[in-house]
């Protein structure tokens, strides 16, 4: 009788272990649900997050375009130079980099260049970025040896022309104005001048 109980007990324990092992090993620890929540209202912000839906505005978004005719603090307007060949030439002739050329700015420019430009333009600006080398995107011309599609050699591009291209984009390159602030654009321009020499 006791022996029988023992085997049953062991059997039950074994079954329990197997069951718990099976249950705990199920899935890859990801879930489609957030699980239980308590006092959710302490988590939700009273103010709006920038990418949150918002019924107060007609287009339903919290992030609104600044009203027409206003300039955000720290922004430099570039409206005088429209996205036309004339605007490009005018920017090239008139606009100069307002930032001082120093080591800090160049370092920051190099970092920004690496994140925002090098996937296509390549680490040295030869038009051989990682995406280009994988043949997933056509190569842009080299800063040092290429010709610009707007005429002239890439190595002769002036401050304003490079800034204009970052601002509006050109051919297959899109505008990078939403990713880079004016100061950051000028730092990138400064670093591109370095690459034109390479």
């Amino acid at each position: 009788m006791l022996a029988m109980n023992k085997t049953k007990l062991f059997g039950a324990a074994f079954a329990a272990v197997v069951f718990s092992a099976l249950v705990s090993s199920c899935g890859n620890k990801t879930t489609r649900s957030t699980g239980w929540e308590f006092s959710r209202n302490m988590y939700d912000p009273i103010g709006y997050n920038p990418d949150q839906p918002n019924d107060n505005f007609l287009n339903g978004a919290t992030a609104q375009v600044p009203p027409a005719g206003t300039t955000p603090v720290g922004f430099i307007r570039f409206d005088n130079y429209p996205n036309t060949p004339e605007g490009y030439e005018a920017a090239g002739a008139e606009v100069k980099n307002p930032l001082e050329r120093n080591e800090d700015n160049l370092k920051h420019g190099a970092m920004l260049y690496k994140s925002f430009c090098s996937p296509c333009h390549g680490p040295e600006g030869h038009g051989d970025g990682t995406i280009v080398n994988m043949e997933k995107f056509p190569p842009p011309p080299s800063y040092a040896t290429g010709t610009s599609s707007r005429g002239g050699a890439m190595k002769d591009l002036s401050d304003g022309k490079i800034y204009h291209t970052i601002y509006y984009g050109l051919n297959l390159m899109g505008s990078h104005a939403s990713q880079l602030s004016p100061d950051e654009r000028w730092k990138v321009v400064m670093y591109v001048h370095e690459l034109q020499k390479k």
Partner: peptide, 24 residues
Amino acid sequence: NQIECQYCHSGAFKSKNASIPSAN
């Protein structure tokens, strides 16, 4: 494709919010 995180989440460098990229 080895695109850096900040290419799309450009706010992570300079803002509280890492920012979800807009469709542009």
